[in-house]
Amino acid sequence: MQNPLLMKFPWTIVAVLAVNSLSATPKTETPASVEHATFNSRWSASIESEVKERIMRLNIPFKVRYDEEVSSTIKEYVTNGYRDTELMLGRTSAYFPIFEHYLNVYGLPKELRYLPIVETGLNIKAYSGAGAAGLWQFIAPSARMYGLEVNHTVDERFDAYRATEAAVSMLARLHSHYKDWSLVLAAYNCGPARVNAAIREAGCRDFYTVANYLPQETQHYIPRFIAAAYITNYHKHHGISPRYKGAFGKPLRGVKLFESYTIGEVAHASGVPVEVLRQLNPAYRRSIIPANERGHYLLLPASGLRGLKGLVSARSGRFDHGHRLLYPNAFELAYVVKPGESIEEIASRYNCTVQEIAAWNQLSEEEVFVNQEVTLYVAELIAPIKP
């Protein structure tokens, strides 16, 4: 995995200077000086002291230390690299709910959601020189070991759902061995063999001591994780706001497709542009979603879900069986699954059974996933739980 500051954030600034030496008008402030003023407003000695205090308030599942590495990384986030930071923050709206869902399902700390920021800056199309790919930077052998499909048609390392579950499964397995999240993250970055060797060399299991015997990139990993957690929580204190590009920032829905579709067919039925579908679903290399018994995930703007459902019904032969007629006195509710929710929790909340939810929505398995929209028939409307 490459140095995150090199691979994920190019930190480039283009200064445009407009100078007219023949003009007699008073000299005005140039874009470069505006940039410099912005730089100073986002980072100074007084600001850094406040940053240190906030760092100590972060809820992170390991010992937090504020050092030069943490400071310099945050400084890059809020000064030279603030434009990239804004775009990265804009992508959290799409990916954090998926991360939180699987972290909850596996019983892991939700703060691990910051890990892909360190890995890729939340760039789902990231591909390293070592062959690591996707948000969680799996190399192909590890991806296949954790059940991901990697071939010429589909590469699930670029599937936000599948890759996240695989990564969370790996993190759970590493934690069962190390019982220390800082060592888990180190092992995720450089591999358990190197971490085990470093522990033996250090003669202890304290990360900040063990780090001296780890590869240089891994030494930086925990400080950069702390910086990623900081900028996600406190970016507003530096005048930075999420910036949305394409589908990011819009309500999204997840569906699971079992039959074969082309991205073009999905775009035509849903009304979602092809480029937006490709932005959200880069796992489908040839713009084809192959048929699959376990299903392939598709992420799309909520506005396109209704049209897609019509295509899916026609292709699969599974149509609405008139449940509305069977429950004439019930309210029909379109419910969107929240991060970490299970079908059992939804059934209990709305006083119905798991089997009924599966039947109403023609689910092949009695399970649900975040961003999935399910139809419920309920005796009374209940305010949905806020995510």
Rank of each mutant, 00 (worst) to 15 (best):
A167V: 07
V168G: 10
S169P: 12
M170D: 12
L171Y: 06
A172L: 15
S176E: 00
S176T: 00
H177V: 13
S182C: 10
S182M: 04
P192G: 01
R194M: 14
V195D: 02
R200Y: 00
E201T: 03
G203E: 04
C204D: 03
C204I: 02
R205H: 14
D206K: 13
F207V: 01
Y208H: 12
A211R: 04
Y213W: 07
P215Y: 04
Q216C: 04
T218C: 09
Y221F: 15
F225P: 08
A228C: 09
A229E: 13
Y230T: 05
N233W: 15
N233M: 15
Y234H: 14
Y234T: 10
H235E: 11
H237S: 15
H237W: 08
I240E: 03
R243K: 14
K245Y: 11
K245Q: 12
A247H: 07
L252A: 10
G254N: 09
G254E: 10
V255G: 10
K256N: 06
K256Q: 04
L257Y: 14
L257S: 07
F258M: 03
F258A: 02
S260E: 15
S260F: 00
Y261L: 06
G264I: 01
A267Q: 13
S270L: 12
G271Q: 08
V272Y: 15
P273A: 09
L277Y: 12
Q279I: 06
Q279K: 05
N281D: 07
N281G: 00
N281I: 01
P282L: 00
P282A: 03
A283G: 08
R286D: 14
S287H: 11
P290S: 03
N292M: 05
N292H: 14
N292F: 09
E293R: 11
E293N: 04
E293Y: 13
R294T: 08
G295C: 07
H296D: 07
Y297T: 02
